[in-house]
Simulated scan of single mutants.
Amino acid sequence: MKNELLLRTKRFALDCWHFCFKVPKSREYNAVVNQLIRSSSSVGANYRASQRAKSTADFINKLKIVEEEVDESVYWLEIFEEILPEQSIEIEILKKEGKELLAITVASINTAKRNRK
């Protein structure tokens, strides 16, 4: 599961990047593109960092960052859904993956908290 999540979080960042590459170039779009690229790439980077955590508390803290970044990525995808409705199929696929990663992350945080007690 750990290796699968490393791959899924990396794939999420790459898929978001490929989507952003197709977005029209303008100052307005670029602002949202930059936010999505930043947050989606942070998901994988911070999940990877969580695997090197020095303690359970450190692991939970790193996963909380993953939770925030994947939730933010879904938010930016929702913005794109409003401004680029013609891309709704691709956006929906990305949102679905983001929401699945979010659910897995929250479950992992809850499990780590329970096991700590």
Results as ranks from 00 to 15, higher is better:
R11L: 10
L14M: 12
F19A: 00
C20D: 10
K22S: 13
V23N: 08
P24S: 13
S26A: 06
S26T: 09
S26G: 03
V33E: 01
Q35E: 11
R38A: 09
S39V: 08
S41A: 13
A45L: 03
N46C: 02
A49L: 03
A49P: 07
Q51P: 00
Q51L: 05
R52I: 05
R52C: 09
A53G: 01
K54P: 03
F59R: 09
N61K: 04
K62L: 04
K64S: 14
K64L: 12
K64Q: 08
I65V: 06
E67I: 02
E67L: 14
E68V: 07
D71A: 14
E72F: 03
S73F: 04
Y75L: 13
W76G: 02
L77M: 03
L77R: 07
I79L: 14
I79G: 07
F80I: 05
E82G: 10
I83E: 08
L84P: 02
L84F: 06
Q87P: 06
S88I: 12
I89P: 08
E90N: 12
I91S: 06
I91D: 06
E92W: 13
I93E: 15
E97G: 00
E100P: 03
I104A: 00
V106P: 01
V106R: 10
A107T: 08
I109V: 09
N110H: 10
N110C: 12
K113L: 08
K113T: 07
K117Y: 12
